[in-house]
């Protein structure tokens, strides 16, 4: 079972945290700090797995973002890397070439997508199509409710997005090879 997942930037800023075990806030902060420091200190070619307390840490970097999962002894490290990858693919499909800013500004969406992929620390659904369909259905419900049209919003804000792409975009090439 996965115990938690953390997303943080190269600068050490936490972008998303999902805990599948109950810890007091103080402990969460301590764990987060400790892991961010440990992982940022590691060199690129190092192993993606490390032993930490009685857990296994699996992490991977996508452009400016680090994805880090803590799993239990009997869990499969390689497949956890692919859980991360599937999540990135989902974000990528949903946001259209996702970048760190998408996750900052739409953190709630990032949570909703994660909740479709993993539940209670276990994989719930692995099919990309099925998950995106579920998220689309949620969006549809929202859009019906919303006063403003989503299309106009996108049109309005595209200008900013270009800027972010050049500086922050996740490196597609790197990721998919």
């Amino acid at each position: 079972m996965m115990q938690f997942m953390l997303l943080f930037s190269r600068q050490g800023k936490l972008r998303l945290q999902k805990w599948y075990v109950a810890h007091p806030d103080k402990l969460k902060k301590k764990i987060t700090r400790e892991l961010i420091t440990t992982i940022l200190a590691r060199k690129p070619k190092m192993c993606s797995f490390l032993e930490w307390r009685d857990l296994k840490i699996v992490y991977k970097r996508y452009a400016s973002l680090y994805f880090c999962c803590a799993i239990e002894q009997e869990d499969n490290e390689l497949l956890t890397l692919e859980v991360i990858h599937r999540y990135v693919e989902l974000l990528d499909k949903y946001f259209g070439s996702v970048c760190e800013l998408d996750i900052i500004f739409n953190f709630e969406k990032a949570y909703f997508i994660l909740d479709e992929l993993l539940l209670g620390g276990e994989i719930q659904e692995t099919s990309k199509k099925t998950i995106l369909k579920a998220i689309a259905a949620q969006d549809l419900l929202q859009e019906d409710e919303a006063v403003e049209g989503a299309l106009r919003d996108i049109g309005l804000l595209r200008k900013h997005r270009k800027v972010s792409l050049t500086t922050m975009a996740l490196d597609n090439h790197n990721r998919l090879t």
Partner: peptide, 21 residues
């Protein structure tokens, strides 16, 4: 500010921008 899907909350996006600035 990137695009917001669904029913984006402008106020929230503005606030996040403020913080980032």
């Amino acid at each position: 500010m990137p695009a917001v899907r669904g029913d984006g909350m402008r106020g929230l996006a503005v606030f996040i921008s403020d913080i980032r600035n």
